[in-house]
């Protein structure tokens, strides 16, 4: 199925979870469809067609 990761289309297996597209939790955070999902819940968060996933980290700026 197709999801959207940081604004780009990405194809993942049926039954995939957030963990499958976000391998490491160090210094990063993820949101699914506009809501933050704590790293501890990535593995138990299934993905659905057209889900929008954001993955962010600290960057120079401001």
């Amino acid at each position: 199925m197709r999801i959207n990761l940081n604004g780009q289309p990405r194809f993942v297996e049926e039954g995939a979870t957030l963990q499958d597209v976000l391998p490491s939790a160090r210094g990063v955070a993820a949101a699914l469809n506009g809501s933050v999902v704590p790293a501890a819940s990535w593995e138990s968060t299934p993905l659905s067609e057209d889900d929008a996933v954001e993955l962010v980290t600290a960057h120079q700026g401001g």
Partner: peptide
């Protein structure tokens, strides 16, 4: 620091 999209899930260099 600002918060921006990343594709690198290994480490945050600045952080």
């Amino acid at each position: 620091v600002s918060v921006r999209r990343t594709s690198d899930t290994g480490s945050g260099g600045l952080l």
